[in-house]
């Protein structure tokens, strides 16, 4: 069984061929970082234009590297949301046309579920229930996979995603885009001794907030303009505050929701300090901590193909993009929202 997975939800165009839901035959990722670098963030119109320019070659290369032809593909999977609508529609329109013409099943995958399934490409799926922290440039969500197989959002960011905060702080410091790797590299040379104030969510929810932290850095820079000597310390301090916020909230979630494992995924899961801190948290709770290798943390087609096992096929005639697609909260699932 060969599945072609296509992902174009933000600024990475990716296509992958997956065999039997697990074995990656190819996973081609075309990053637009260079295009968006000068703007300090993703420019949606530029991203859409670039996706259209690259979609053919990304898919063709994925097929070539897998050593298969389009006629050998048994099913198609594509990200249907959440994401930038203009970007989503390129992958969706292309995948729909392939599935329709070849008369094969099509799966419209939730991008966040895709990130969780990236974990299972390299690790055995843990027994239910488990907890996943999905953290990227566009998303910061705690997702709980319950014993009955239901998947719910139990915490989410109320403003910026963690990765977005990295991008914005990197922009303030003139480090370029994407901010995550730039800040992480700088932080290695600095000490995280500045205490940036964080917004603590006081209503007992498991939500996150990163815009206050970003503003704290902004105010600090107004009083203390960045110099070559101070940037590493600012980066280390900001990174530490972000990691602490993510780990603290995950730990609070574990106190409320029993879990057999902690999963960390999404682009920010490439961050070594976060990986280390989350592994440490898991050890304290005697739980396994499952994190994909960095290449599978980034947006990629293999995770979308892998996540097709978690959805029902849709008609290629009906599928549309949903930029605000969510994983329902527990209360919504129980019909009490």
């Amino acid at each position: 069984m060969l599945i072609l997975g296509i992902e174009t939800s933000c600024d990475e165009a990716s296509a992958a061929v997956l065999e039997d839901g697990r074995r990656i035959l190819s996973n081609v990722i075309y990053s637009q970082d260079e295009i968006h670098n000068r703007y300090g963030g993703v420019v949606p119109e530029l991203a859409s234009r670039e996706h259209l320019r690259k979609i053919d070659s990304v898919v063709a290369t994925a097929l070539e590297q897998a050593g298969v032809g389009i006629r050998e593909i048994d099913a198609y999977a594509v990200t249907r949301g959440p994401g930038l609508i203009g970007s989503l529609l390129i992958g969706i329109s292309y995948a729909k046309a392939l599935a329709y013409f070849r008369q094969k099943p099509l799966f419209g995958v939730n991008h966040l579920i895709g990130h969780i399934h990236a974990v299972f490409l390299e690790h055995e799926k843990p027994p239910l229930p488990f907890m996943a922290l999905v953290v990227s440039g566009g998303h910061t969500s705690l997702v709980y996979s319950a014993t009955d197989g239901s998947v719910s959002t139990i915490g989410k960011t109320r403003d910026d995603a963690a990765g977005e905060a990295f991008d914005k702080v990197a922009k303030m410091l003139g480090l370029g885009y994407p901010g995550g790797p730039k800040i992480e590299k700088m932080a290695r040379e600095g000490r995280g001794s500045i205490r940036f104030s964080r917004v603590k969510i006081s209503d007992g929810s498991l939500d996150f907030s990163f815009s206050g932290l970003k503003t704290a850095v902004l105010y600090h820079l107004r009083e203390n303009p960045a110099t070559e000597q101070t940037v590493p310390g600012i980066c280390a301090s900001f990174q530490r505050a972000c990691v602490e916020a993510l780990v603290e909230q995950t730990e609070r979630a574990l106190q409320q929701y029993p879990a057999s494992a902690i999963l960390l995924c999404g682009g920010v899961a490439c961050n070594a300090k976060l990986r280390e801190a989350m592994s440490h948290l898991a050890r304290r709770h005697a739980l396994p901590c499952l994190i994909p290798s960095p290449r599978l943390c980034a947006d990629n087609g293999a995770m979308i193909a892998a996540a097709s096992v978690a959805c029902d096929p849709v008609s290629p005639l009906d599928l549309d993009g949903d930029p605000n697609l969510r994983i329902p909260a527990v209360a919504e699932r129980k019909g009490t929202a």
């Binding site: 234009r49 259209l52 063709a60 609508i85 529609l89 329109s93 292309y94 046309a97 392939l98 013409f101």
Partner: peptide, 19 residues
């Protein structure tokens, strides 16, 4: 329309690649 054009072209690219 930028978005309209891209949908039509992306779909045509997919149909052409499949056929």
């Amino acid at each position: 329309s930028f978005t309209g054009l891209r949908i039509g072209i992306a779909m045509t690219k997919g149909l052409a690649a499949a056929s």
